[in-house]
Amino acid sequence: MRRTPPSGSHPATRPRIGAGTSSLTGALVLLALLTFYPAAFPSFITLGVTIVLFAAMASAWDVLGGWTGQLSLGHAVFVGIGAYTMALLVLRNGVAPWWGAMVGMGASVVVAAMWGGVTFRLRGPYFALASIAVAEMTRIVANNWARLTGGAEGISLPTLPLFLGLDLFSRRVEFYMALILLGLALAVAWWLQRSRFGYHLQAIREDEDAAMALGINPTREKVWAFLASAALTSLGGSLYGIFLGFFEPRGMFSLDLSVQLALMAYIGGAGTLFGPLIGAGLLVGGSEVLRIYFPGKSLFVYGVLIILVVLFAPDGLSTAVRRARRA
């Protein structure tokens, strides 16, 4: 038979299949290095917790937003559920925060199942719009249902029990908890990069009709991705609640928070192993520097960076760097 290879195509120098082991090594080395952060930069420990925690939550967002391509601008709902469930169970029922976090995770999964079941029939920008509506409604309810949530004045955490002998309000402890969560999120991303389920999600992201023609049930796979994403984000939310100590619906359920998670993942590289981590580092770090010069909370850096990324590195910085290295 005559072979007529399609001409004019240029094979990439490095196959993506089999790249798994090297990226796994990279992730492990990175996590190992990060364990030294509290000792190396004790005066920047709060910044460290913020970066690692947001990296974990952005990675969690990325399971749905990046790997599956369903742009959610409502993930703050799960941050809020995680934080509030944990805090309210501590305050009202004296339940230990780690059990509260588990309950919150369960609640988030239930919410995600209903939310996804109803809105995953929407495609493209309509799903994003619906996610904003769901999140804003949740915020309004949380704000007004004062008997449940404490309302707009917010709630503050009391003294927490020791966790395995550790003080949860210590920044060092919080750092390592966040690091464990980040490890978990990276493990999920690494698995998505190479598993059948991960390929199903990527196929749905790239072309839903073609994915269906290959035997993939998009709604079912999207719902699973949403559940995983919600569960991880919710854990991050519980930890974020402890980290803050005091919070209110306006911040926990805010559109800004949802947008931040999405932008971190996109700027670093959505649907990549390290993208969300890189994005979180840049954005949290960048905002921190700006805050020193311009007091007051500012998302200016987020705006500038996302514009530059969309224009010049549409697949995110980590992908752009990888390409530049290859060229």
Binding site: A12, P15, R16, I17, R196, Y199, H200, Q202, A203, E206, D207, D209, A210, A211, A213, L214, G215, I216, D315
Partner: peptide, 25 residues
Amino acid sequence: GRTFQVMKPFPRLTVMENVLVGAFL
């Protein structure tokens, strides 16, 4: 199995991965 007249590759996946998605079935 079917092909699409207006072709629908998974553009950001490699050629191998495109086929792999179907092979998993």
